[in-house]
């Protein structure tokens, strides 16, 4: 592998990390509260708002049922509005974030619904406000589940980011397609695959470790 290609590999890795980090961060900042809302706004629940719950749930489903590559192209006007351009690595963060929010929201919703309703009842009996129930009970108890949800999100984002080459987003996937595939450079393809595998492994291991540390449910001594 030539030094130029190696440089390209480094650059692409940097782009992938940049896109995944920013999209993951913003997506989580919006997605986690949205997930909490989805999990607590059903009929008779903590923040009961069945209508809002239904509408948001429908939007989340719509976004999630759109294949990512279609979403990238379909929201180009929105991307231009937010990023000023629809081409390039920074612009690619917009569709990545838009796809991340509902993904995180559904996973967080599921993690929170796993929390024993008895704990909510106990907290209510203690005189906890709905906000206290969310912060002190739901988020605290769902922390291992939420950690795993965010880990899965980052892993999926690494995969999604390979598709944004279509709009000039760059990144490892783009490198693999343009050099490895179109220019018949199997060594580049192999390198891209190896870097992706290492990245995903690292993220997954770190996430698993954190989740285990947070999980006090079964730790025989």
């Amino acid at each position: 592998m030539s030094p130029e290609i190696f440089k390209l590999l480094l650059q692409s890795t940097g782009q992938t990390l940049y896109m995944v980090a920013i999209a993951g961060l913003i997506g989580s900042l919006v997605g986690v509260p949205l997930g909490v809302f989805l999990a607590t706004s059903g009929r008779g629940e903590l923040y009961a708002a069945p209508a809002a719950n239904k509408v948001l749930g429908a939007i989340v489903n719509a976004t999630r049922s759109t294949p990512f590559i279609i979403l990238v192209v379909a929201i180009i006007p929105f991307t231009r509005l937010v990023a000023g351009t629809s081409i390039g690595t920074s612009a690619a963060i917009v569709p990545l974030t838009v796809a991340t929010v509902p993904f995180v929201a559904r996973l967080v919703e599921a993690a929170i619904r796993e929390v024993d309703p008895g704990l909510i009842e106990a907290a209510r009996a203690m005189g906890a406000s709905p906000l206290q129930i969310v912060t002190k009970v739901l988020l605290a108890e769902a922390r291992p589940g939420i950690t795993l949800a965010l880990t899965l999100t980052v892993v999926s984002l690494i995969g999604y980011s390979a598709m944004v080459g279509a709009v000039g987003g760059g990144g490892l996937g783009d490198l693999g397609i343009r050099y490895g595939y179109q220019r018949f450079m199997p060594d580049v393809m192999a390198a891209v695959v190896i870097v992706l595998i290492v990245l995903v492994q690292a993220v997954q291991s770190a996430g698993d470790m954190l989740a285990r540390r947070f999980d006090k449910r079964s730790r025989p001594r």
Binding site: D116, G118, L119, R124, G127, V137, A140, E141, K216, R217
Partner: peptide, 22 residues
Amino acid sequence: RLRDVRRSIGMVFQHFNLLSSR
């Protein structure tokens, strides 16, 4: 008002309802 009253009433549950993270 109910929240204040609840703070003056303790409750014990069949399945304990303890937070596993605490």
